[in-house]
């Protein structure tokens, strides 16, 4: 592969990091004003010499997304075993496998920015530095909680992911094509569980309502703080990484999922207060939500979440021998060169 500016053979320097070094040496990276001007759907790829600020912002966003896929999969994994029927077991197993695959796709999209390698990001997740979605810091203990993730959280995620098909970092958009293709099954499977529970015994319905009340505020916080409080929104949106603001996404989610929840017989909790506008859209009273807990979670300091991070770390350590044997194998075949990375 040749760079446009110099014609120096890139593989001699090695991958995205080499390319990044090359742009620093040449001082030819795109300036931020040009990035903002050009920012559009799938506008930038590894061929473009993006400025550090863009690459860092994109890495932060995609790494967060990748981490969330992995942590979500670990949260749902116990329910492969606890599923009440063979069909549900198969579906949960397929879904968990999908989510881990999404994590891998996204780490590749993040790696292509040349800021961090996949190994570094996986290590950051293990040692508690890697950030991920608020909802996946809470424990999930009962089968009636599964649709809270599989229907509502996945539904919220899909709403956001659909907009990210138009993100400006092309490898991220490509990952979203595949993620959205697979995610439809997850959300509809979650909806099927919710439907089953809400047409089941009175006890099942009550337990589901209880789980819904526990999860509802967290689900609304999925979209993060209001735009005013969001620290990263401005830049990410100016350079086309983010396509819709937190507020817009939250409103879009409420507009389709409040009626769905009600249709299945769930009662929307009194807090946070949600008002219906004249045009039929919904608005949340943000002050009713526990933002202290949210920001504690955002720092990876919320207790159940810490346990979940450590649980995954142990699993990663348990299969270290697989990674090491593959790395060693690659070294024997191809020698040194690129930093060795085999599999998660």
């Amino acid at each position: 592969m040749y760079t446009r500016t110099t014609g120096i053979k890139m593989q001699s320097i090695g991958g995205p990091i080499g390319k990044w070094l090359l742009t620093i040496v040449n001082g030819r990276e795109m300036d931020i004003e040009t990035v903002k001007e050009r920012a559009g759907p799938r506008e930038f790829s590894a061929k473009d010499d993006m400025p550090e600020e863009y690459r860092k912002a994109a890495t932060r966003m995609i790494q967060f997304h990748a981490n969330s896929e992995i942590m979500g999969a670990y949260l749902e994994r116990p329910f492969i075993r606890q599923a009440p029927s063979l069909e549900r077991k198969l579906a949960f197993s397929a879904k968990t496998q999908d989510e881990l695959g999404h994590g891998q796709l996204l780490y590749r999209a993040a790696e292509s920015l040349g800021v961090k390698t996949r190994d570094e990001m996986l290590d950051e997740l293990a040692n508690g530095e890697g950030k991920f979605l608020n909802c996946f810091h809470y424990p999930m203990e009962s089968w009636v909680e599964t649709p809270m993730i599989a229907f509502f959280v996945d539904g919220a995620a899909m709403r956001r992911q659909a907009t990210l098909k138009n993100t400006s970092w092309e490898p991220y958009a490509h990952a979203m094509d595949k993620v959205c293709f697979e995610e439809g099954f997850h959300v509809k499977h979650g909806e099927a569980i919710l439907h089953e529970l809400m047409t089941g015994s009175k006890k099942e319905q009550e337990m589901t309502q209880e789980a819904f009340e526990k999860w509802w505020p967290r689900i609304i916080q999925f979209f993060g703080p209001t735009d005013k409080q969001s620290t990263h929104h401005g830049f990410a949106s100016e350079v086309g990484l983010k396509q819709m603001s937190n507020d817009e996404l939250r409103r879009a989610f409420l507009n389709s999922y409040v009626p769905k929840a009600e249709k299945y017989g769930l009662e929307i909790p009194d807090t946070p207060r949600i008002t219906k506008n004249d045009d039929g859209t919904y608005e949340v009273n943000e002050d009713d939500l526990d933002w202290d807990e949210f920001f504690q979670i955002a720092k990876n300091e919320y207790e159940p979440g810490v346990g979940q991070i450590d649980g995954r770390k142990k699993a990663q350590e348990a299969v270290a021998w697989v990674r090491e044997s593959m790395d060693k194998h690659e070294q024997t075949i191809y020698g040194g060169g690129e930093s060795p990375q085999a599999a998660d």
């Binding site: 891998q104 996949r118 593959m326």
Partner: peptide, 19 residues
Amino acid sequence: CGNVHAPDRDMALLFAEVQ
């Protein structure tokens, strides 16, 4: 359609198949 990490061609095919 995408890319994978793998130490050799056989494993690349295996990971491509899964992913």
